[in-house]
């Protein structure tokens, strides 16, 4: 692979780019490519929009928890007072 990235090279690094995990040199090479390639510019934009929509989908309206569901868990906690070994926080 030469100094210049192809579209395929850019696409292969799109995840690392949008996650801020790409080194300075690769980032520079991608931005040089994006300056002259509308297709890759659109693609990176699509990837950022996809990432944002995935994140937004975590906040779909959560129903208020049914008090009975909470009570059932609290009753079990009260009935089993011994702490269990669990992963360290």
């Amino acid at each position: 692979m030469g100094v210049r990235f192809t579209c395929k090279d850019v696409a292969a690094r799109a995840d690392a780019l949008i996650d801020g995990e790409l080194g300075l040199w690769d980032r520079l090479r991608i931005h040089l490519h994006l300056a002259i390639c509308k297709g890759c510019d659109h693609f990176i934009h699509q990837m950022r929009q996809t990432k944002a929509m995935i994140r937004a989908s975590a906040a779909l309206p959560d129903e208020e928890p049914a008090p009975a569901a909470l009570d059932a868990i609290l009753a079990r906690v009260a009935a089993e007072p011994e702490p269990e070994p669990k992963p360290d926080g």
Partner: peptide
């Protein structure tokens, strides 16, 4: 999505 030279066969659209 790429041709033999590593270019897009079909350019991604602007959403």
């Amino acid at each position: 999505a790429f041709d033999g030279t590593g270019h897009w066969k079909e350019m991604p659209a602007l959403w």
